[in-house]
Every structure is written in C-alpha cells, then in structure tokens.
Design a binder for these strands. Sequence first.
DNA 1: CGATAAACGAGACGGTACGTCCCGTCTTTGC
DNA 2: GCAAAGACGGGACGTACCGTCTCGTTTATCG
Lengths: 237, 237, 237, 237
Amino acid sequence: MADSVPNVPSGAPGSSRALDSSRVPDSSRRSERSRRAIHDAALALVGEVGYAKTTVEGIAARAGVGKQTIYRWWPSRAAVLLDAFVERGDRPARSAGEAEGGSEPAGIPDTGDLEADLKLVLRATVDQINDPVFEMPTRALAAEGIVNAELGAEFVRRLLEPQLHLYVDRLRAAASRTDTDGVAAVRPDLDPRIALELLVGPLAHRWLLRTAPLTHAYADTVVEYALYGLARPRPRP
Amino acid sequence: MADSVPNVPSGAPGSSRALDSSRVPDSSRRSERSRRAIHDAALALVGEVGYAKTTVEGIAARAGVGKQTIYRWWPSRAAVLLDAFVERGDRPARSAGEAEGGSEPAGIPDTGDLEADLKLVLRATVDQINDPVFEMPTRALAAEGIVNAELGAEFVRRLLEPQLHLYVDRLRAAASRTDTDGVAAVRPDLDPRIALELLVGPLAHRWLLRTAPLTHAYADTVVEYALYGLARPRPRP
Amino acid sequence: MADSVPNVPSGAPGSSRALDSSRVPDSSRRSERSRRAIHDAALALVGEVGYAKTTVEGIAARAGVGKQTIYRWWPSRAAVLLDAFVERGDRPARSAGEAEGGSEPAGIPDTGDLEADLKLVLRATVDQINDPVFEMPTRALAAEGIVNAELGAEFVRRLLEPQLHLYVDRLRAAASRTDTDGVAAVRPDLDPRIALELLVGPLAHRWLLRTAPLTHAYADTVVEYALYGLARPRPRP
Amino acid sequence: MADSVPNVPSGAPGSSRALDSSRVPDSSRRSERSRRAIHDAALALVGEVGYAKTTVEGIAARAGVGKQTIYRWWPSRAAVLLDAFVERGDRPARSAGEAEGGSEPAGIPDTGDLEADLKLVLRATVDQINDPVFEMPTRALAAEGIVNAELGAEFVRRLLEPQLHLYVDRLRAAASRTDTDGVAAVRPDLDPRIALELLVGPLAHRWLLRTAPLTHAYADTVVEYALYGLARPRPRP
DNA sequence: CGATAAACGAGACGGTACGTCCCGTCTTTGC
DNA sequence: GCAAAGACGGGACGTACCGTCTCGTTTATCG
C-alpha cells in the first residue's frame, strides 16, 4: 500500500498503454503475500549478515520469491529495505512508544516547560538510536541516501520527516504562547526548521561520525546549549 | 607518507621476513609513480562516473597499474579514495584558503568578535561544501564511513578532525578571555566539543539530508541561534 | 484442422469431463482467429529474428494473444512452428507447383524416361531448398527434429513423407513396367525406400552440412550415378 | 591446443593491442587443468541429462570453474561440446579402432575389392552411429550445426571431414587402378565427393530422420545400389 | 434469452539460466 | 622482489523466458 516506486496512474487504468515502453506493472494484481515475504526477508537478512552482504538474490531466495518479483516492484535493494523498514519498523516502534505512554508518534508532550519537554524527547531519540536492532539498517539507509538523492528524499520523507515535524509543532506552540502569559518560551522571530536542526543536528553528527557516544547527559546538554546559547549572558549594567 | 593501512612494522627492519606468510610489503621499495597514478585515477573516476561505479579494476586500468599493486597497499576501494582525497584534495583547498588570506588551515581568525569570526568560518564551510568538485567524493566517503566504522574513523581523523579542532581552539580562546576583560564571550563551563557540534551539526544535517540548500544566511542564523539561544531572553524582575 | 497434439478424444464425447484434472480443452470452442494469428506471428518471427530468438512470449505478443492460448494447444514452440509451416507453407508451395503444371503434389511425372523424370524432380527439390524463405524455418525444424524424436516423427510424417512417397510411387511404377515391354527401368528386386534415399540422401547431406552448393548440375549427376552406378560397366568376356 | 575460437594472432604477440576493444585473452596463460575439467564436465553432463539440459552454469559448476573461464575461451555451449568431443572423443575411438586392427583413422582398407572394402567401412560407420554413447552428443552437435553455420563448418571440418576424406582417397585409388590391370573399379570420370555422398548420404538421412533402423544389411544394400546402380543392367544385343 | 461455462487477453508469479561485471587471489614475465 | 598484466574461482548482477496460475472479459452454446 505504501511502496515507493511504481504507482498506478491513479486514473483511467485501461488508457492507452500500448505505446508506453516503460512496462508499468499492474499493481492491483500484486501479490500481497510476496510483498510481505520480501519485507520480512530483507529485514531478517540485514539483521543477520549486514546490509553490505544482503543481496537481492538472497532476499528472493529467503522470501521464496523470484528475483523478477523484486525487480518488478522496487528499483534497488535499498528501496526494498526502506519499504520494509517503514512498514514493519512502524509497528514495533509504535507499540513500544505506546507502552512508554503515548510518546513520539503521538506528539511531543507539551507540559509548558519547553526545556523539560525537549530533553525528554531528545533522550528518547538517543535511546532509539542506541537500539542495536535499528542501528545497522538505519545506518545503511542513511548512507545510501547520502549518495543516492532519490532514495535520500524517500528516506527523509517517510522516516525522518514525521519525527522532525513534531519538533516544529512543539516549537511553534512555544512561540505562540507569547499571547497567553506574556512570556514566550522562544524568540519571537524563531525559524523552527533551523531551531530543530540545532537540536537534532548535533545528535546526528555524533551518531553518524561516531565521535563520541550518545548519552542522556549529552542530550540534556544539547538542549541547554541550544535553548540558552553558548554565549555567556551579558551582565546587566 | 600518509597511506592508511599496511605500515611497515617500523621496528626490527632486518628480521627474517622472507618466511613470513602474511606478506607485509616493503614500503621502502614502493613505487611513488604508481601511488600517484592510482590517486589520480581514483579521483578522476569518482568525478566522472560516481563512486558506486568506480571499481578497483577501473582504477588499475586507468592508472596503468596491476590490480595487485592496489590490493598490496590499500585494504579497500574506499581507503584508496580517502588517501587520494587527503593528499590531492589538500592542495587545492590549501591554496584556496591562502588566497582568502590564511584562513582555515591557519586557524580561525580571532578578531575578538566571536560571532563575526564564527560566521566567517561557517560561511567558508558552506562554500566548500557547495563546491561541486568536492561534493560527490565527500558524500561517497561520508556514506562509506557511516557504514564502515574503521573507515569512518579514518575519515574523521584525517579529514574532519583538523577542521573541527580549529573550532575547539577558537572557542577555548573565547572561554579563556574571561581573565583579560572580565567578560567571557562564552559560558565559563562550556564544553567545546558540544559547542562545536551545535555549529557544524546543523550544517551537516542539512547537507547530508538535502532538506534545504546551504546558504550564507543559513550559516549566519545558525551562529546567532547557537550563540544566543533559541529561548527568548528572560526579562529581568 | 491439423494441429499436432491435444486432439479431442474423438470417442465418448459426452463423458464426465468436468472432473478430469488433466484439462483437455474443447477444441470445438477454439478461436480460429487466434490460431491463425499465432501461425502468422510464428512464421514472421522465425523469418525476422531466427528460430533461436523466437520465443513463446514473443509469438503471443505479436499475435495479440495470451501465452496460455499457445500452451493450451501446442506442447512446444517447435510444434507451433511445424503447424504453421504445414498449414501456411502448403499454400505457396502448392500454387507454385500447380503453376509449373501439376507437379509434385500431383505426383512425379511419368514420361516413361525415368532418368529425365527424376532429374526434373530433383532439380525442383534443389530449387525449393534454395528458396531463402523456406531455408531457415526448415533448418530450424529439421534441427529440432534431430534432437527431439517426437517432433522429428511429426516433421517427417507431415512435411517429408508426402514428398518422399512420390519417389516411391514413381520407382514402383518403373519396376512394374517389366511386364509391358520386357525391359524394366530398374532392378527387379529394388527396394524403393532405399532407392529413394540414394537420390535424396546426397542432397540432404549437402544441404544440411553445407559442404557444397546445391545446383541443378549436382542433381543431374546424383541421378546419373544413382541410376547407373559408380562402378564402371564390366566389359563382356 | 585445438580449441575452436580465440587463437593467438600467431605472431608479434605484444603488438599494439591497446586499441583492440575485443579483449582477446592470452592463450599462453590458459589453464590446461580447467580446459580438461570443462571438457570432461561437458561430456559427462550431455551423457547424463542430455544436451538441452546441459547448461554453461552446470558445466562450470561440475568442472569447479568460474563461468567466465568458459565464456573466455568458447563462444557457446555447443562450441564447448564440439571441442570436448573432438579431443576426448578421439581417444576412445582411436584405441577401439586400433583394437579392431587399424581401422578408419588408419584409412579404408584396400584389398582390391572395392565393394567389400566399402561394405566393411559402411558397416563400421553404422556401428559407430548406433553406439549409444555417441548418439546423443552427435545429434546435438549436428542439430546445432544445421542452424548455426559457423559451428556447422567447425563440426564438418573437425569431425566429419577426416572420415569423409578416407572415402575420397579410396575411390580415387580405385579410379587410378585403370592403369595397372586395364579394368577400373569405378567410372573413369567419377567425382569422388559426389560418390561419397551416394554412400554416406543415405545413412545420414536415415539416421537423422529416424525413418528406419540402421543395420549392416542396409549398409550392404546401399553399397550395392550405389556401385551398380538402381537401373537394371541393359541386356546385350 | 438469459445463464453459465469455457476460451481468451493479459500478465504476475516462482524459477532457471543467461552473459556480464567485479571481487580478491594467484601466476607469469619482465625489469 | 616489486610491478604490469591478466587468468582464475567465485558471487551477484539485472534480464529474458519458461510454464503455471490467477484475474476479469468475451463468446457461444444450452436450459
């Protein structure tokens, strides 16, 4: 239902297809069984042997599927994994999140204390990143996306954007709070996309480059620095 | 002088090496000519066909070199490229830098105005990142490093660390300024490694994920937000 | 009317066929339109791209027909081509023959001069073999028949036998002439099947192995040698 | 030493090869071990599963060889089999022949009695053809050669021609006998290539088309018919 | 005449093999 | 003894077809 590439033209299905040499398969005839088997096989293999050794051939064999069935629906190994990750990865993440009490996918909590809220979420992100199950596949997808722009866009759109948008919402909420109590939590002119990057950019940097381990303490410090600045508060005259 | 992996044991040089099956090559006999040709070929190919299609065989053919000569001295295609990049990439960067008036490699300027200094450097980084010649090879190396920890460490150590260290120095300088004028530019307790990440993390994030273009204005905003915080200055009681 | 394999059982037609899992198709419902289209497509493709590159998929696509419609009625690609050849190939051959004045299908002429009659027919065979339109498909079928005994038998039965039988008839006629004029054209004990092979065997040999071109002169020589022998007539004592 | 396709230019080995894009491998570096293993595997597989199911992949696997090693030296599966057949097939045939007392490869016997000599040899050919070990591979090669002119030429040149040439020699000898005893065994004007075809053409025809079994009696009859003609000897006046 | 069952077009599917590319190792032949 | 050249065993690629198996859609008798 959410696969990345060959969408149906979404209208006039039997229209003049004869002259289209690009062979668009008919997604209404697609085998749901195979799709799931391929997702499962892909995730299992990445977990077991790593992304570099996960081959299309291997996925097909493990899924009990012909190679062509993979090539028919996905343009690359990475796209398969991304789809698998989005679809299957959602479920455990969501249920885990709900177990913790309605976390991220439900939105960043808004207790009124922006610093506390951000720390909570950044710590959660740290935890997720440190989860060994997610680590390698996510690295693989990120790496692929860095080199392959098209896949990178998919990666951002389908995996990252939903998470990042929560930060934007929370920051916007903080900005609009000015009216109610006369004290905005954030600068009135704040660009939330940039603000967000000040928060998650450092985490991503550290994770991708492995310059230092990601800890809760680190998350806290980043929030503090980002909110109140690196510069020392000017003494008042 | 700077190749990444099979160093000479650097001790006990005359020992009976002939019977050692692990075949450590004698780097003193290494052909300088081949080394350079391999570097050039690697860079040229990455530029022309992209990293994914740059093969060891292709590099060897282009360099007029036997494949074994590559395998003898480097453990992987990525290591070749990294070496090539460090050695050849340095030169243009350095000369460009000197043309601007002794910039980065010579250290971040310290005019006393931290904000201005940081903006200057971040803008320079933005420019370098936007240079199309550097873009693809750098992406390729970064992507490889994300997945391959060993190469990632090399990448950071040899390409990134020197640049990042300049930020650390400048920030430390700002912190120590307290003594001189009684007003530190930065918080006294500042951790410079984290501070640095608040500055470059956002840039890296945007570049790697292509979420938005990198501009000078963006660099300026990042510096402002990072220095003075996202939060609105508290009114004094 | 002449397709090779799944004939109707041709007896007990109303028997309980519904439960028969071997799925014998009802040939009375067969689409004449499709049959012809498949024949035409098969012949056209063999002519255009050669037999080896003529695929079932290609025939189906060209004929505007589902693959299953081919598999339903023929057991193999070769069987399709054989059918096509027999049915469509007949027509031009027959009309050409009739233009010459009631030739082959009507029987070898019997002018009383066996040598002349055989030369005439062998020359006609040479001409037919040299016709570029027939050459490749015939080679393809012959080659297939050499390896595949079942198809070979079909090939002989439906394409070759009718032609060869004419030789047998003519030779038998020559043998029976003894009675009328006291002088038989052929040995009285002659086995016509072997005699026939002495005539067409050499042509076939030369054509299949391409050891030398097939000419009228060659046909004439074969007839002479075959009729009067390789050995020199013994001088009488 | 006798493989069919990529010969060395046979002179000036190191000459300007740089501009030749057709990648001619250096046959002096060829692995004799692999060549033999491929031959053996090919023959074994054709014997076990038949030619149609003998794949390049299968040969490579059985021979413990990379596929590329096959594609490097042969243009097709059929060429491999032909080479294998010529080289390995020779040995058993030769030794069997010598056991019988210096048969074919040593030349057709010349006892002075042409009829007896030819019958002997044609019977031997019948026996060879009926040998189940040779049957299927030979059929496969013959069929391939019928469709593929290039391979057909190789087939004739390397397998057939040597055998056929013996007939030519024997017939020529018979023709030149005129001088010695005043009585030639054969017509003085005889074309030996055509005469030969009168002898082997019928056998080939029967074998390829399976119209009737090949027996010694058949061979004898062919020789008689061919030597003395189908026509009845004219009564003398 | 409308029900119904089979043939039909279309083409997705699990497979097999293709012929190519490259891997990393090994061997040969200079220099 | 390094280097160029490149053959080798091996593994995966992406493609082409195989023959089977659904899907609706005609089509053509029969109830």
